[in-house]
Design a protein around this nucleic acid. Structure first.
Lengths: 142, 142
DNA sequence: TTAAATCTTATAGTTTACTCTAAGTCAAGT
DNA sequence: ACTTGACTTAGAGTAAACTATAAGATTTAA
């Protein structure tokens, strides 16, 4: 049996590593999203696997989850395997919302693209002086 | 020549129509995003075409544009056709940012999907007791 | 005539997610 | 010995985009 010494980071080292501030790390911890270990002097230290956890949190946040939702997820996790079904349904909702978000973003971007086309046509004099964007857009309605 | 009477909405009628509040409409106006006409008594009234404008603003906002950016766009618009090129480059940036946003959202949702798969595999006992999500994820790295 | 709606300006409150300061304690490195 | 960094609790500040209140004036529909 071999003992391997694990890399430990202080809060400011770790903050730099994951592009957050010590303030933010303590804030997340206060919300229950992190629980770094402590040394003999009660100072936090972070390890390699904490990077992966932060990354995962970021992905969840990036889907639009609020801090409160993250807290709920983390609370379930802490309760062990019997909450896996609940976690699944939580993440399914997250996924569904995310897909909706993408669709809406796409729709909004399409309008922007049409507007860009309209401007370019207008610059080329390809648009009747009195045709406005509204009637132009109407052409693209299915 | 025929005179057609146009529908006019009071601020609260219009607010209900576009799902905003009178507060918000005045707020938008204070930012220069709207300029409703006024009646003899200086009360705002809105018309059909204002609905289209609100919709367009919503699409722009929906891409992630801030109020400040919207203000800039509206200011350019008010300056007339000589700002069309500038408006084009503004909207192009909006579009580029939006595409980036979609890519990121997709990446984040993929991670969520992997996590869901992992949970489902785990529920089925298909995952080694000691395999964590990190090593599971590693399988999907290109 | 009176209640309801609108107007104005100015200011305050709300929410989310940080971000920072204060103020005092403690421990480790040079 | 001393500077540096970390710790604590509590609370304040920031930014965005609303949302609301106050307070007084005016107008209009019933």
């Amino acid at each position: 049996m071999k003992t391997v010494s694990k890399t430990q980071y202080t809060i400011s080292q770790f903050a730099a590593l994951v592009n957050l501030t010590p303030y933010t790390l303590r804030y997340y911890e206060s919300l229950g999203l992190l629980k770094p270990k402590r040394d003999q002097a009660q100072r936090r230290y972070y390890e390699k696997q904490d990077i992966a956890w932060i990354d995962f949190l970021r992905h969840l946040k990036g889907t639009g989850m609020t801090m409160t939702e993250l807290q709920k997820y983390v609370r379930l996790r802490a309760q062990g395997d019997q909450t896996i079904k609940e976690r699944i349904s939580l993440l399914q909702k997250v996924e569904a919302k995310g897909q909706t978000k993408i669709k809406e973003l796409n729709k909004n971007l399409q309008i922007v693209q049409h507007k860009l086309d309209w401007y370019r046509d207008k610059l080329q004099g390809k648009i009747a002086e009195n045709e406005d964007f509204g009637s132009y857009l109407a052409k693209f309605k299915e």
